[in-house]
């Protein structure tokens, strides 16, 4: 089912170019004037355009947008808001059924975990945990679509046969870092809000080593700061790379399976079933760590 024709300069379809093609985002960015494009055309002036090759997307530099990742994540986010809002608004007397029941099960699951792990009082943590969990589950489930289906549909729709279309948002580090950095900012905000600037700085410098006489304490502060600083910085990085690593490895395996020809059907199913566990587990871990980190931020010493 692999697409026969590929980019102009990727003439033959080797496993490597197939995988490169499927791992390349649809990048919108500005190419400088006089830039020689993949198909030989030279640009007279700076143009906003879609990259036709990995080299072009690199030339677009930092300020380029992965449209497919942005599009899918925003779409799934709106899907989540729409359905949850519709169910929340419609009140059901008696036992809820079908879809309403599913939404309530998700709510109860997230609520139970928030109650268990979150010791402080905050009206942000509930909706935040629910959004993080459901959104990441939705984004991850995009991975279950067969690898060639959506890009093929997109190529037919857009008419551009060399269309890059990476469907799973969480295999793009931008999304996972976006999630984890926003959680990181919340951690810092609530640490300062709950413990004040002094408390937050004190938490970074007075733990774990502290002593009575000030001279020794002055020596201990830098190494405390180093220890606590690294563990603070490790939180967003590990959050982001854990989700990204899992989904990227899962996506790669789907790509390898897709290259098996007709043997891909049973293997795709087997790996998809196992991958459902990975999808839910990674969303659960991301939510739980968000709750735990924020409850640590809310603690008073």
């Amino acid at each position: 089912m692999a697409t026969a024709e590929t980019n102009a300069h990727e003439t033959e379809l080797t496993p490597n170019t197939y995988m490169q093609h499927h791992l390349q985002n649809l990048v919108l960015g500005k190419l400088p004037a006089g830039y020689e494009r993949a198909d030989g055309e030279v640009l007279e002036h700076e143009t906003w355009t879609l990259a036709h090759s990995p080299a072009e997307s690199k030339a677009m530099g930092f300020w380029s947008y992965n449209i497919d990742t942005l599009g899918w994540s925003i779409f799934l986010g709106m899907l989540f808001c729409f359905f949850f809002h519709r169910v929340a608004r419609k009140s059901v007397d008696g036992a809820p059924s079908g879809f309403h029941n599913l939404i309530e099960m998700c709510l109860e699951f997230v609520n139970k975990n928030v109650k268990d792990a979150f010791s402080g009082t905050s009206n942000v943590i509930g909706p935040l945990a629910l959004t993080v969990f459901i959104w990441i589950v939705l984004m991850n489930t995009m991975d279950l679509f067969p690898v060639d289906v959506l890009p093929l549909v997109m190529q037919k729709v857009s008419g551009n046969p060399h269309m890059y279309f990476k469907v799973v948002p969480t295999t793009d580090p931008n999304i996972t870092f976006g999630l984890s950095i926003s959680v990181f900012l919340l951690i810092i905000f609530y640490s300062i809000k709950m413990k004040g600037i002094g408390g937050f700085i004190g938490e970074l410098t007075l733990h774990p080593f502290h002593s009575k006489n000030p001279l020794l304490q002055a020596v201990l502060i830098p190494c405390n700061l180093a220890l606590e600083g690294i563990s603070l910085m490790a939180k967003p990085v590990s959050l982001a790379l854990r989700l990204f690593g899992n989904m990227y490895a899962g996506e790669l395996l789907f790509l390898l399976i897709a290259m098996l020809g007709y043997w891909q059907l049973p293997f795709h199913f087997i790996w998809a079933v196992f991958h459902i566990l990975v999808i839910l587990l990674q969303a659960f871990v991301f939510m739980m760590l968000t709750i735990i980190y924020l409850s640590m931020a809310h603690e008073h010493h």
Binding site: L241, G245, L281
Partner: peptide
Amino acid sequence: AGLIDAVTMIGIG
């Protein structure tokens, strides 16, 4: 379990 294979997954990535 999710935390255990975090570093491994980063390594695999």
